[in-house]
Design a protein around this nucleic acid. Structure first.
Lengths: 224, 224
DNA sequence: GGATACCAACTAGTATACAAGTCGGGAGGC
DNA sequence: GCCTCCCGACTTGTATACTAGTTGGTATCC
């Protein structure tokens, strides 16, 4: 496992959660692999308690399955779950981006454009992890503008299924289209064109759906 | 606090979560009141560990606020949060009820009708707690038919803000309209009329929005 | 009398000990 | 050789001990 650096004043639980989540998305903790509270605790330099609390959290989204008194495993990629995750994102983000068309201030537009500019930079630099973080940040901004930050936070609980697939896609397919999509969406928001913004968002999110077959062909052992 | 009966084979954590949640929704644990891990553990006949795990879970949805090393309190009713919660439900349920119009089998319709029938029964019997449970069950059925059960589960994390307001509304306003709404929605699903189903659902969910002012007048001390 | 510094009694965070359950391997009987 | 039983080494679940940080009251100093 890739042990991240612990942030100042970060609790053990938050540290464990952040690290484990990161490793799941990046497939360091591979789908289907067994995990042990004791082992993770030792690797992270913590006791079982905070690690266990993090695992419980992850099990809520069914990204980890805890079989009591038996074992805990990283869930295999379940396409039904990915589809639920995609559905949820799609429905919520399309509704939110419509709101943005009414609510976005010039400052908001500026922040979105700055995010896209950075995305282009890291796209050219071929730095996929950073690009994915910026992608998340961009979508977070979209929610924040519509005053739906909490919805975004909770949506991310299930989105990890989607993120994991995205993580594979980002190293397997071209990222170029994604960043261009973002730019188009910002333009539609700035013009105040909710119908077009929705259409673009829906198209944008549909890309991951299309890529799934290729990913499955590449990593068949990770699928249910 | 109203201590529920522990179910067979239920873990301490699940028991604590279920009981605390129930008490929050029913306002036994009043908005703004301080809670103590030790006190809850004693009341539930558990140690701090499972109680603490339950509280962490609830804090994720911001229904409980944990101030490290200081105190934990039941969150005051934050109307922005209720609105986010309502927005999320509205967007997701409207999308799901449209899917239902295509996907619902005759058996599914039967289950929905049975639920409505029971709702009518408990409406006549004036048994609001049972009615609210049936209301939740009804909405859960709507999601299950569209194969979006996990979305429903995660949505409920934030819905507790909404549920708490609903709990006040059910004892303060007429329930009659709610059950009638449900029946109308089932009819639209059975006819396979997605536009009408969406319209009815949106109207149905808007009721709680309208009632908020009256509730606030009745329980001003519970609001932020 | 008023301001300050300290201390006791809380809080939540973490570590550890123990309980309960699962599973697989090996000894023993046949 | 094969089946069966049992035991030991794992797992997660829970209880408890301890750490660290906050708070409010009180004694003390000025």
């Amino acid at each position: 496992m890739n042990v991240l650096e612990r942030l100042p004043r970060e609790t053990g639980r938050d540290y464990a959660l952040r690290t484990i989540k990161d490793n799941i998305i990046k497939l360091e903790l591979a789908p289907g692999s067994q995990i042990s509270e004791n082992e993770l605790a030792a690797e992270l330099g913590l006791s079982r308690t905070p690690v266990r609390e993090a695992l419980i959290d992850l099990s809520k989204a069914k990204i980890i399955e805890i079989y009591p008194q038996k074992r805990s495993v990283v869930s295999l990629i379940d396409y039904d779950m990915v589809e639920e995750s995609r559905f949820m994102r799609n429905v919520l983000e399309c509704a939110v981006v419509e709101l943005d068309c009414e609510l976005a201030s010039p400052d908001d537009i500026g922040r979105l454009r700055e995010s896209v500019r950075l995305q282009k930079f890291y796209l050219d630099s071929f730095y996929p992890n950073k690009l994915m973080a910026l992608d998340n940040e961009f979508h977070g901004l979209i929610f924040g503008i519509a005053r739906k930050a909490q919805v975004f936070t909770l949506m991310q609980n299930i989105s990890i299924h989607f993120d994991r697939v995205r993580s594979m896609a980002l190293s397997a397919v071209k990222d170029l289209k994604i960043v261009q999509d973002h730019e188009d969406i910002v333009n539609a928001i700035e013009r105040g064109d909710p119908a077009e913004a929705r259409r673009l968002m829906e198209f944008h999110l549909s890309r991951y759906k299309v890529d799934a077959a290729a990913i499955r062909a590449k990593y068949p052992q990770y699928f249910k």
